[in-house]
């Protein structure tokens, strides 16, 4: 096991567990400003946007069309199912056909 991976898992687990456990012992979180709650609510969606771009364009610089078509296939499939494995499979097949 690589030291870096173990460090990533352990430190991020500590931080994540902190978010999960602190409210069980501290009541102040009920009185957080509403702006901060909105900020926390929207953060995962902002993360998705930043994860998709520019990585989708740069990671497939040898075949950018395959990357875009693969992601588009997943997006379209996701419109029809809440299950994640089907969009993932669709993206593999689409990228495979394009490569």
């Amino acid at each position: 096991m690589s030291f870096d991976i173990v460090a990533i898992v352990l430190f991020s687990t500590a931080g994540t567990y902190f978010s999960r456990v602190i409210p069980f012992f501290a009541g102040f979180l009920d009185r957080l400003p509403i702006f901060f709650k909105r900020f926390l609510q929207v953060m995962p969606v902002a993360a998705l946007g930043a994860l998709l771009f520019p990585g989708l364009l740069t990671d497939f610089s040898h075949a950018p069309a395959a990357g875009l078509v693969g992601a588009a296939a997943a997006a379209v499939t996701a419109l029809f199912t809440k299950n994640l494995i089907f969009p993932v499979l669709a993206s593999i097949v689409a990228a495979y056909l394009m490569l």
Partner: peptide, 29 residues
């Protein structure tokens, strides 16, 4: 491609429920 397929699918599932998420995701991208 699967990782990006996963992110694209998650994004679609999110914005289906909350259209106002679209500009937020676009701004981050």
């Amino acid at each position: 491609i699967t990782l990006y397929g996963m992110f694209a699918a998650l994004l679609i599932h999110n914005v289906q429920n909350e259209y106002w998420y679209i500009p937020v995701a676009a701004a981050a991208a």
